[in-house]
Computed example of a mutant assay.
Amino acid sequence: MPPFPEPTAPADGRAEVFLRYLDYFREGVLAKVSGMAEDEQRRSGLPSGWTPLELLKHLRFVELRWIEWGFQGRDVGQPWGDWRDERWYVAPQEGLAELAAALRAQGAHTRAVVEGSDLATRGAPGPRWDGADPASLERVLFHLVQEYARHLGQLDIVAELAGGPVGE
C-alpha cells in the first residue's frame, strides 16, 4: 500500500497530490476487502444492503464515469454497469481478483489522463454532465477523492463488524 500522502511530503504539483490520495484510498479499499473472509466480501451487515465487493465494483465505475465518460467524453458502453435493480450489483461469477484488477486498471487510466492533462481543462461535452457545463479535471479529481474517502470510511466500519482488518 502506498504511504499516506502527508501534507508535508513534497509534490510536483496539485495533480500529483490528487493522484497520491487516489492511489492511497484505492489501495486502502483493496486491502480492506482483501483482508475480509470471502463470504464476508459478499455479505452485507448494513440496512442499505451493499456488500464490500459491490463497493469495490462501484468505485471502479465511479472512476470510469467521471474520467472516461465525463472528462474524456468517451462512449464506455454501460457507464452504470455497477447498478442493477436500483442498487449496486456484483454477479455471482465476479470475484475479488477480477474486480481488484479492474479497479487498478481504471486507476492506471486515471493516472495517465491526469499526467497528460492540465487540471484547468474542462471535460468534453456529453451525457455525463446531464446538461450542465463540463467540470474541470481538478473538480472531477476533488470529487473522486471525496468519493473514495467517504466509501473507505464506510468500509472501515463494515470490515471491523465482519472481523476483518481494523485501522488504516
Rank of each mutant, 00 (worst) to 15 (best):
A11V: 15
A11W: 01
D12P: 01
G13H: 02
G13V: 01
L19C: 09
L19G: 07
G28S: 11
V29L: 15
V29H: 05
L30A: 02
K32G: 00
M36T: 06
M36P: 02
A37K: 08
E38L: 08
Q41L: 00
Q41F: 02
G45Q: 03
S48F: 07
W50Y: 11
T51F: 00
E54C: 06
L56E: 03
K57P: 00
K57H: 03
L59M: 14
F61Y: 15
F61S: 02
W66H: 11
I67S: 01
W69T: 10
G70H: 01
F71E: 09
D75A: 07
G77A: 10
G81Q: 06
D82M: 01
W83P: 00
D85R: 09
E86A: 13
E86W: 12
R87L: 08
R87I: 07
W88I: 11
Y89L: 03
Q93W: 07
E94D: 12
E94M: 09
A100G: 10
A101C: 04
A105Q: 12
A105F: 01
A108P: 02
H109M: 04
H109V: 13
T110V: 13
R111N: 04
A112N: 03
L119K: 00
T121A: 15
A124D: 03
A124Q: 14
P127I: 04
D130R: 15
G131R: 00
D133P: 02
S136V: 09
E138R: 12
R139K: 15
H143E: 14
L144G: 07
E147A: 10
E147D: 15
V158A: 11
L161K: 13
V166G: 02
